[in-house]
């Protein structure tokens, strides 16, 4: 329990340990700790950012979905309208066509009737002449009674 030269030795040892600690222990440890601190802060910030981005993306996706839905319903509506229009149009066209066909058919029929009547008239007149010839052959001369025969034939034609 006396003070002796141990005091000096221990003071030197003390400073040596302090120096060693200051040189080789403290700086790398605190540097590593600082670095980790920065890393963790960065990681946390990145996580926060990612979360925010995710939220934003979700919101955007929802908006896009809503847009798509309204657009789809618009398209369907439009298609419905267009289909109705097309049906109407087709109907109109069909009616028109039908009317045209009917008209053409009617005209043809009329023409047929007219030509048939003409043919009939000619045949009747030939028949009448033939009959008249037979009669007249027996009674009168053809040249003498021509006006009479013509008159009959024209009467037949107007009938």
């Amino acid at each position: 329990m006396n003070i002796n030269a141990t005091l000096i030795g221990q003071t030197i040892a003390f400073f040596m340990f302090v120096w060693f600690c200051m040189k080789y222990v403290w700086p790398p440890l605190t540097a590593a700790m600082e670095e980790r601190k920065a890393k963790i802060a960065e990681g946390l910030a990145a996580g926060e950012r990612g979360k925010k981005e995710h939220e934003l993306a979700e919101k955007r996706a929802k908006e896009v979905l809503v847009d798509a839905r309204t657009e789809a319903s618009d398209i369907i509506n439009l298609a419905n309208v267009r289909a109705g229009e097309m049906v109407e149009e087709a109907k109109g066209k069909a009616l028109e066509e039908a009317a045209k066909v009917k008209k053409g058919a009617e005209a043809e029929i009329e023409q047929e009737v007219a030509s048939a009547r003409e043919a009939l008239r000619e045949q009747v007149s030939v028949l009448a002449i033939a009959a008249a010839e037979q009669i007249i052959k027996s009674e009168i001369d053809a040249t003498k009674h021509k006006s009479l025969v013509d008159n009959v034939s024209s009467q037949l034609g107007s009938a």
Binding site: C21, V25, L29, R36
Partner: peptide, 30 residues
């Protein structure tokens, strides 16, 4: 005069401290 036990034990313990802390400092990573 020197107290050999005091010096011996304290230097040994100091070396122990330096050894372990230096080891940790050398392998310290973030």
């Amino acid at each position: 005069a020197l107290n050999i036990d005091t010096i011996g034990v304290s230097v040994l313990l100091g070396a122990l401290f330096i050894y372990f802390f230096k080891k940790a400092a050398q392998t310290a990573t973030a």
